[in-house]
Nucleic acid binder design. Sequence first.
DNA 1: TTGAAAGCGCTAACAT
DNA 2: ATGTTAGCGCTTTCAA
Lengths: 338, 338
Amino acid sequence: MAGRADVARLAGVSPAVVSYVTNGSHAVGAETRARVLAAIAELGYRPNALARSLATSRSHTLGLLLPDSSNPYFAELSSAIEDAAFAAGFTVLLGNGDDVVEREMTYVRTFLDRQVDGVIVCPSNDFSHGFDELVAAAVPVVSTDRVSRESALPAVVVDNEVGARTATEHLIGHGRTTFACISGHGDMSPAQARAAGWEQALRDADIDVDRDLLAFVDFSAEGGWEATRELLRREPRIDALFVGSDLQAVGALRAIADSGRTAGKDVSVVGFDGIRLGEYISPRLTTVAQPFRDLSKTVVELMVELIDNPDQVDTEPRILPTRLEIRESCGCLPLAAT
Amino acid sequence: MAGRADVARLAGVSPAVVSYVTNGSHAVGAETRARVLAAIAELGYRPNALARSLATSRSHTLGLLLPDSSNPYFAELSSAIEDAAFAAGFTVLLGNGDDVVEREMTYVRTFLDRQVDGVIVCPSNDFSHGFDELVAAAVPVVSTDRVSRESALPAVVVDNEVGARTATEHLIGHGRTTFACISGHGDMSPAQARAAGWEQALRDADIDVDRDLLAFVDFSAEGGWEATRELLRREPRIDALFVGSDLQAVGALRAIADSGRTAGKDVSVVGFDGIRLGEYISPRLTTVAQPFRDLSKTVVELMVELIDNPDQVDTEPRILPTRLEIRESCGCLPLAAT
DNA sequence: TTGAAAGCGCTAACAT
DNA sequence: ATGTTAGCGCTTTCAA
């Protein structure tokens, strides 16, 4: 691989001049510049990003710490973040923490060791130590999806409570009478906020909240499936179900079908997230859609600001609105024959 | 941030000795070693991975170039690869090429600039130039899912043709009479092999292959949906459908439902990939499951071999078996009431 | 067993 | 406008 010195030799200039043209920092004579460019092209020279980073202490790399990028929600989020980062000139170092602190910490350290310019994180409940280490290392952090309550750090999230309330109001509008809710567990996660939104909507409509019909379970299809089965066993009259994530909602739909009921008819279901597949499954999933694009763009913008201006941290979370995507599972659209 | 020099000073040794203990390369006196370790702990010192990489020309970083990690198949694949890489001591730099060569190339260069130790790639059809650049840079490449036919390069794939044949045989076993197939387009992709497997199974069973009922479309739910609609319009008697990917299969199920038919009863459907959600949707998707774990482990193992032994490239592709996962959409299991 | 010194490939003053 | 030089933080040969 040709190095800068080779280019310099070929162009008959000093190595510094080569840097000047690759960086566009210094002014360089037009003719010299042309010669250097020619040499670069001829040798197929590319600056070693590592060496450059070492010298500039800027890696143009972002660490992205997720619980699990195989989860459709995080898959779509990470893809959108990757895209926004790419557009902003950053490459993403990906880490799945699997919601185990030990592993999350390992990734944080790996990121830090590699001198990332910042780290974007969807922290597990017990990640606080991770934040400490991050701020101690003085590297910008922005959290998304889930927000730390203990450490006040920049965050970009969606208005979970309002989204959940809107969804629940929609359910109420369907004239339903027995309301259940499934959400994820965890303090820091949006699960609480979504459950709270559900409760609030019921209260606002003077509907009794039966907390036995509120389940906090694993953030997975299986979690949703099992919870729904149990809920339905406990209270067979449930005819409205708000689920705090689409992944769980898919499991819920499965359980509803298994129980011999028809989602959208016997029980109205609304999910949360707006994963792409929700549009295609049967019944089509009514859901509170998150603006993945905007979310990611905002996260990266915020990150770039923090990188350029490390001291001026605005810990006020950016809150983006959700949009209720009305489809079949709530009972609105005519169900396709199945 | 404390540097190596600080540790050296605190421990009263030369910087080199600090390196000796962090790398465990040189022998170091027990007592000295203890002092250094203590200093490291006290200062919270961590070696700068960039500097280390620059000196050793080993970054312990792998580039992962995918078409689109928000696609459930690639999401699960990438997550499994990330996990295998993590276990092997590598961190993953993620890039979504979006199947556009320009963008793929940008990522290849970005990876190369960052001195990745190797790149794992699911190349688009026109990625050959990317391979050239990679081999020119003498960095190990292993491709997975899709395999280049032009450049003979290490690859880890699944036995697509056999998987598809097995699936189709299963469909035939259901006593179906009118067979359709949807697959992805593209030379390099496994789409061709899966379609070929479908055809082969029909031939082997002396069933006429109606190539009008074979559609190559976009690798997406929408692609599957639209193709199925069109196929059903063209030949309403279709009662068996093999789909070359689960994502497309989800779209196909949607179209079947929309047409007033019942998948699993009126038309038997088998997908390919084995994405997790297939287990939960209605009807539960019968599919040819890929061994994500094994695939990823093999990819990373192969990569590690290549890194340790760059000249000894074994271009013979590793071919892993699939497993037919029988559920509802083919008509085997009793359909849950919907 | 420990230390000195020359890189790794680049940036960024500073000097010319 | 161009070249010189001293790092960036680490590894590694070589000598002590």
